[in-house]
Design a protein around this nucleic acid. Structure first.
Lengths: 198, 198
DNA sequence: GTCTATAGACAGATAGAC
DNA sequence: GTCTATCTGTCTATAGAC
């Protein structure tokens, strides 16, 4: 179906190049359809972009929901949650850029209908935190601190590694590059558990 | 001096709106000078942007260097380093967006002359890590893992808090909002020290 | 639903006068 | 060094035929 095909290609393009850098002209060239066809299915560029974001959140929320199917304990769930993040990046690496750009823009390009979808993801993380046995001093800590810690660290680490700038000596980066993502996933898990839990 | 004034205003504009969303037309309107004047001082938009980034790194590196003037121990230096990050954000909050966007774009808009400046900052963090007493398992950990952890977490946390989307209930966010940044600074310090050090 | 053709605005950049 | 005037290219979006 044309409408779905537009959404799929638009996702990749927006993720790769960012909202501004994607032109509708180039998009339809890649799609090999006419520009007016896109405007028939989607009101304008902005609403197409919002549909892209919504689709990403929906698919992500479904996957997160699955984590709770087996009745695991808190630490196991946290581990799975972090590993899901890594798995997503490995499958769709371009989503990292998209997320970082959106965070940078403070969500100003997004419309309010995105909020419930974002909150659903947050809710799942909160459910995991509720199953952890926090030290008293970390009992009241905001879920957003953990969101930032997990997403922020992974996204930044991934981006520095993938950077087109030749940062660091190649050897120095390669020290982590092989294990890289699974290493950072394990690192984050450990620092959360060993610092905040009894 | 006109050239400096251009750089100053350009910094703010690029940080606020991002590279693409800044037009030279608007920039010169804000500067109340003619467009051709900008092009006299700077080759093109891209090179103006690169000068902006360079200036930011230079000022940051100078401040980081100062941390070493008093001969503090590793943990103290790490604390100061993290607090410097927070101080910078409080003074120039728009730099967060700029940094996140640049990370998202994998540095593809930047030219190679930025690398030594980025590496200088990394070098300072490495000097701090060298003074920490790591557990054996964390002895060989890359400095970039810590860069990601510190910057990533702070930037993300700050951005979620400042988000224009009304994420979470206001109350829930305010729980951290007052102490917010100093809280997250302390949080990061603690998780690094308590997990990775003897 | 999909197309052709184009409107209309604005972008980055420059030539040449002063 | 700074200006006016203007170029060329590209952008989003739409009207109207099929």
């Amino acid at each position: 179906m044309t409408k779905d095909k537009i959404l799929k290609v638009a996702s990749e393009e927006f993720a790769k190049y960012g909202y501004d850098a994607v032109s509708m002209n180039n998009l339809v060239k890649k799609l090999e359809i006419n520009k007016a066809t896109v405007y028939y299915h989607y009101k304008d560029k902005k609403s197409l972009y919002n549909e892209v974001i919504k689709a990403i959140f929906k698919s992500r929320n479904e996957e997160t929901k699955k984590l709770f199917e087996e009745n695991s304990d808190g630490p196991t769930l946290l581990k799975l949650y972090i590993e899901l993040e890594i798995k997503t990046i490995k499958e769709k690496p371009y989503l990292v850029s998209l997320a970082l750009r959106e965070i940078a823009n403070l969500g100003s390009e997004l419309d309010q209908s995105i909020i419930p979808l974002f909150e659903e993801d947050t809710k799942y993380l909160q459910m995991i935190l509720d199953r952890l046995n926090f030290k008293d001093e970390y009992k009241d800590i905001s879920v957003y601190a953990f969101t930032s810690l997990i997403m922020g660290t992974i996204f930044n680490f991934y981006s520095i590694q993938m950077s087109e700038l030749a940062i660091g000596t190649k050897d120095e980066l390669k020290k982590d590059s092989e294990k890289s993502l699974s290493f950072i996933s394990d690192f984050i898990y450990k620092i959360i558990i060993s610092t905040t839990c009894k």
